[in-house]
């Protein structure tokens, strides 16, 4: 995963300005901010509201309505585990208990060393090859707890290089 930039209101204003010409610009802006900073800082709310001529409540409502947007920085890696039915049929529930046990965190939480944040998702479209996961946007099929450990170690190496 690309390293995120530290929050900067100036940089945020620039990103917002790039998107204001779009019809329904709110979601594209929030995605762009999160991609840059890793989360949507509270300081962005009035900036977006001003730029789009909307109320702060509307922007805040949007950020909290959608599962994707977070208001605080996450761990270095984002692990999305599929909790939906086709993966359940391949034993995902038991697997997730094991994974969360190894990582020592719960859903929506970040590991103590800050290496990973675990989010539940409901289907990744890999349903014939479950259990499935998305690690920093990269799909993983036939997931096992060992495979996840390995993938995290590998992405760690790649980030260091």
């Amino acid at each position: 995963m690309a390293r995120h930039e530290p929050w900067s209101a100036e940089r945020a204003s620039g990103i917002i300005a790039e998107h204001t010409h779009l019809e329904g610009a709110t979601l594209p802006i929030l995605h762009a901010l999160q991609e840059t900073f890793g989360y949507v800082d509270g300081g962005a709310v009035p900036l977006i509201a001003d730029a789009l001529n909307l109320s702060r409540a509307e922007i805040h409502g949007c950020i909290t309505f959608y599962h994707d947007f977070r208001s605080h920085p996450a761990g270095r890696h984002e692990v999305k585990l599929c909790r939906a039915e086709a993966c359940q049929a391949m034993g995902s529930e038991k697997l997730h208990r094991e994974i969360l046990g190894r990582l020592g965190c719960g859903w929506h939480e970040t590991t103590a060393d800050g290496s990973a944040t675990v989010e539940p998702v409901y289907c990744l479209g890999l349903c014939a090859n479950g259990p499935a996961a998305l690690i920093d946007g990269e799909p993983v099929a036939h997931l096992t707890a060992d495979a996840l450990d390995e993938a995290l170690a590998e992405t760690k190496r790649e980030t260091r290089q």
């Binding site: 019809e23 329904g24 979601l27 949007c62 309505f65 599962h67």
Partner: peptide
């Protein structure tokens, strides 16, 4: 192409349109 943001309900067409307009779905 526009990206949703992890809300299942946005598969419902009116909720999808709200979301596309930049609102809560």
């Amino acid at each position: 192409v526009r990206l949703g943001a992890g809300a299942y309900i946005c598969g419902e067409e009116t909720s999808l349109l709200e979301s596309l307009e930049g609102k809560r779905g």
